[in-house]
């Protein structure tokens, strides 16, 4: 790991520990600073409220010049998140990444994405199609049901891969 990445991630870690957020936990793996996990708890009035979503984050050696790679490891029903792989389609994870952002900013962006799906770039066509044809009620009940099934502490743990 390069010194630049290490310095930067140490500071991000210190910042996260000093300044915890209610909507998510974020931390690095004990033995590898390049592997992080976020646990998102979307607050009301999110469609996903009550759900607890684990997200694995891998930081490239060129970070923060290039964005981290992100995967949901809890199943989630969302137009821009792949149902099976957990891959996320979000511009800031690709070409619009700014090196002045952090893994913490990223978690906030993921929470914003949950309730602001971009239906024109779907990774989950079924969810995307419901929204595209204006079936908000159907979409809402599908999300609520699948969140209860796969992402609540009571649900049997079901994760992609």
């Amino acid at each position: 790991m390069s010194m630049t990445v290490q310095k930067r991630l140490m500071r991000e870690l210190a910042e996260v520990e000093r300044n915890a957020a209610a909507e998510f936990d974020l931390g690095s793996s004990e033995d590898n600073l390049l592997v992080w996990t976020a646990v998102l708890r979307p607050p009301a009035p999110s469609l996903y409220q009550g759900g607890v979503f684990h997200v694995s984050i891998r930081v490239p050696n060129t970070y923060p010049m290039t964005p981290p790679a992100v995967k949901f490891s809890t199943r989630i029903c969302h137009p821009n998140i792949h149902w099976k792989s957990g891959d996320v389609c979000l511009d800031i994870l690709k070409t619009a990444w700014s090196p002045a952002w952090t893994l913490r900013t990223l978690c906030l962006a993921l929470l914003v994405l949950l309730d602001n799906p971009e239906v024109d770039s779907p990774l989950n066509c079924d969810a995307g199609n419901l929204l595209r044809c204006g079936d908000k009620r159907g979409y809402k009940s599908l999300v609520t049901m699948l969140t209860a099934l796969h992402a609540t502490p009571a649900s049997a743990s079901s994760s992609p891969n």
């Binding site: 995967k71 792949h82 792989s85 891959d87 389609c89 770039s121 779907p122 990774l123």
Partner: peptide, 8 residues
């Protein structure tokens, strides 16, 4: 749409 064969 992205192919699921390749991950991020």
């Amino acid at each position: 749409m992205a192919s699921s064969a390749y991950s991020d």
